[in-house]
Simulated scan of single mutants.
Amino acid sequence: MASRSNTLVVPQATQALNQMKLEAAQELGVQLPADGYYGNISTRDAGSLGGYITKKLVQIAEQQLSGGYR
């Protein structure tokens, strides 16, 4: 397994992020690799997933800051 340069501030968030990744892939019609290796996924698909996840995380943060997320 390759070393990861990005570590989670809250390690318990791994499951939530993985769930968000699966939901994003379903929404965008991107086939995720069953073995977890993303080296063969197209740059376009990887960018779409990353953009979608970032957009969702920003929405969650905005809701929390406005007091609308519980």
Rank of each mutant, 00 (worst) to 15 (best):
45 D>A: 11
11 P>L: 02
25 A>H: 03
50 G>L: 14
8 L>G: 04
32 L>K: 08
9 V>W: 02
40 N>E: 15
12 Q>C: 07
24 A>C: 00
3 S>H: 13
14 T>I: 01
1 M>Q: 02
17 L>D: 00
59 Q>P: 06
57 L>E: 09
65 L>K: 06
35 D>A: 02
38 Y>A: 05
57 L>F: 05
42 S>K: 03
59 Q>E: 15
70 R>H: 11
58 V>S: 01
67 G>R: 01
42 S>P: 04
41 I>F: 00
25 A>G: 05
33 P>M: 04
30 V>C: 06
17 L>K: 03
69 Y>I: 05
27 E>S: 13
52 Y>L: 12
56 K>H: 10
13 A>K: 13
54 T>H: 13
4 R>V: 08
9 V>F: 04
15 Q>P: 01
50 G>E: 13
45 D>K: 09
34 A>L: 14
27 E>C: 05
5 S>Y: 11
61 A>N: 10
15 Q>L: 06
64 Q>K: 10
12 Q>L: 12
23 E>Q: 15
69 Y>D: 02
40 N>M: 14
25 A>W: 00
27 E>F: 07
64 Q>W: 07
11 P>R: 03
14 T>H: 06
66 S>T: 10
28 L>V: 11
10 V>F: 07
41 I>H: 03
70 R>W: 03
8 L>T: 01
3 S>I: 14
3 S>Y: 09
40 N>L: 13
42 S>C: 05
49 L>A: 10
52 Y>D: 10
63 Q>W: 06
50 G>D: 08
19 Q>T: 12
36 G>P: 13
54 T>I: 14
57 L>C: 13
51 G>H: 10
36 G>A: 15
61 A>W: 04
5 S>I: 10
15 Q>F: 02
3 S>D: 13
6 N>G: 00
35 D>Y: 01
54 T>Y: 13
51 G>F: 09
59 Q>I: 15
56 K>M: 10
70 R>E: 11
44 R>D: 13
53 I>H: 12
30 V>W: 01
26 Q>E: 07
62 E>L: 08
55 K>M: 15
69 Y>L: 14
60 I>C: 03
52 Y>V: 08
60 I>E: 06
